[in-house]
Nucleic acid binder design. Structure first.
Lengths: 132, 132
DNA sequence: GCTTGCTCCTGTAGCCACTACAGGAGTTAA
DNA sequence: TTAACTCCTGTAGTGGCTACAGGAGCAAGC
């Protein structure tokens, strides 16, 4: 029992997580089923705000919902910190690979766009670049 | 009528595009409906190989199927090169933005992972980083 | 001519992480 | 009491594929 009773709308505002997304997280079991008011509405507390904020930050860092499940386990002590470390490193390596790919991509796009704007090519330089 | 009659399997091998994906592209109208053999099977030619290779390269550069539709229009002269240029520049800017985001992300992940492996934090540094 | 094994066909459903309804019910302020 | 608002469930859509199930065409060997 931590603090006030919070509606789903207030929870959404405080955490920046969409109302529909909160319900979705409940549905897939990322957050536990919320308590209900007499009228059947979800009631949250400050613990839920904490948890949802945690999830949101993890999502912003690109962790998948499954990875977040593991991170939440680490947070509540049900799993070793080592696992969180492994996840973070694995994810960071994936991010690094993405950056490398995107850099190459950016170069290719820039080259094509530059040749095009200079009107050096007879046809369209971008179409040309994609044709072989 | 350009060249030999090519099955969907051969087309897939020559272009590196999955068979199911070829059928998917036909379904969404990214490629025109293929001609059929007497037995009802799709028959392709070298023009189709060209087109599909074009599409594949564009996908590898991260263009959406809708953007590729426009690029194909430019390729066949039904749309100005200017439009392709605009698309490429817009896409390149999006890629640049992604790179910036991922760099920040990579830094955050590295910092958290490093603090964790050094065992400097009392709890888990990664969980800590996500908690506020 | 028949069988075996391969390729291909259509149609549907699943993936991820949401997002967007429709149609109804609880809640609050004037 | 009425209006405006928030919330409820359930379902379907997004993009770009991918993965079946259940059937049919086709080529080679016997």
């Amino acid at each position: 029992m931590s603090g006030a009773e919070i509606t789903i709308g207030a929870l959404s505002e405080q955490t920046g997580v969409n109302i529909e997304t909160v319900r979705y997280y409940e549905r897939i079991g990322l957050i536990p089923p919320a308590h209900r008011s007499a009228g059947g509405r979800r009631v949250f507390d400050t613990d839920d705000v904490q948890r949802l904020s945690f999830i949101r930050r993890a999502r912003q860092l690109g962790f998948s919902t499954d990875e977040i499940r593991s991170l939440l386990d680490v947070a509540k002590g049900a799993r070793a910190c080592k696992d969180a470390h492994a996840l973070a490193v694995k994810h960071r390596d994936a991010v690094r690979a993405s950056i490398r790919d995107l850099r190459r991509l950016e170069r290719t796009l820039t080259e094509a766009a530059d040749r095009c704007s200079k009107g050096a090519s007879p046809g369209c330089a971008i179409v040309e670049a994609l044709s072989h």
